[in-house]
């Protein structure tokens, strides 16, 4: 598949925003963070989510009709996501407000709990958009959803550690520790999905694609002299080295490098922010690779131009 930057940015930014909210709420539950920290954190989380939402609009041919996409929530994960995302953003906004205006703690905890449910619903919707397509075998696994959740939480907790280093340093080492654990878990599940995908055998072959039982079939012409939507949308169009480089880059950036900073510089904002930036860059590469790795069966029909 062609990695679409709008979607890469959306999934990574929204994931970090969701993780950041979970980090705030966790602190709220267990450690009673000061209200201004929670409010500031909610604002940052909202900023990340809004940036992601803005990026996602660039994926649409007709963004002005985006409201229509809430219609088919009964069948479409994309539609469900379109409903859950603004609901979650609203919940985060109200959660931040209850802290900013120092409402009763129980009220903000209640709203936080609701937002947590929406947060996980959003993770599931985002992951299922990819995991529900049966013939994109690389995506068709619960690991897709698990990875979206795990990486979202990891990057969110790293962001929370950086934020805490400025606003509430006492929490920074705890967030850093949590980010380490979550990042490690995310790394493991991603390695698991890489291992799984390396062993996949495509179910569709040219023989099933055109229905001719013969082991040796080659395409001579695809019915167009130039390219078409099918050659642009479903191929990443990069040499194999680039794809491999993206994999090594994300394997280094999403966890090992930020882990060093998270482990050894738990009180420095600069180091923690650098950890977040590195991890985020790694996530961009990870999502890019996620798309590039997926082989769509339609590609069988688009192998030779001539």
């Amino acid at each position: 598949m062609r990695p679409a930057w709008s979607v890469i940015l959306f999934t990574t930014l929204a994931g970090a925003g969701q993780g950041l909210f979970l980090a705030l709420f966790a602190a709220d539950l267990f450690a009673r963070a000061p209200p201004d920290f929670a409010a500031a954190g909610a604002a940052v989380a909202l900023g990340l989510l809004a940036a992601g939402l803005a990026a996602s609009f660039f994926h649409l041919g007709h963004p002005e009709r985006a409201w229509r996409s809430a219609a088919m929530w009964r069948t479409s994960w994309l539609s469900r996501e379109v409903i859950v995302l603004p609901a979650f953003m609203a919940a985060v906004a109200v959660y931040g407000l209850t802290h900013a205006l120092s409402y009763d703690r129980n009220i903000s905890l209640l709203i936080g709990a609701a937002a947590t449910v929406l947060c996980f619903a959003l993770f599931v919707c985002t992951g299922m958009i990819y995991a529900c397509l049966p013939f994109l075998q690389e995506w068709r696994t619960p690991l897709t959803v698990v990875n979206f959740i795990a990486f979202g939480c990891a990057s969110g907790f790293t962001a929370a550690a950086a934020l805490a280093a400025v606003r509430y340093p006492a929490l920074a080492p705890r967030y850093a520790l949590a980010a380490l654990v979550l990042g490690g878990a995310a790394y493991l599940t991603r390695l698991a999905s890489l291992a799984r995908n390396a062993r996949l055998r495509p179910k569709s072959t040219l023989a099933t694609a055109i229905g001719i039982k013969h082991p040796k079939i080659v395409q001579i012409a695809q019915g167009a002299m130039g390219g078409s939507f099918n050659t642009r949308e479903f191929f990443h169009g990069r040499p194999r080295e680039v794809v491999r480089a993206a994999r090594w880059a994300f394997l280094a950036l999403v966890f090992p490098l930020p882990a060093l900073l998270l482990a050894f510089a738990q009180n420095s904002f600069a180091a923690l922010f650098a950890a977040f930036a590195l991890q985020y860059a790694g996530l961009l590469a990870e999502r890019w690779y996620f798309f590039a790795e997926a082989k769509h069966p339609q590609n069988l029909y688009y192998q030779a131009i001539a």
Binding site: M1, H59, L60, G61, H62, P63, R65, A66, R68, S69, S76, L78, I129, L133, F135, L136, S204, S228, F229, N230, E233, F234, H296, P297, Q298, N299, Y301, Y302
Partner: peptide
Amino acid sequence: CIGCNYCAWACPYGAREI
């Protein structure tokens, strides 16, 4: 149609073109 391409991803035959 909002032109989100999702249906094209969901067609294994590459029968849809934006």
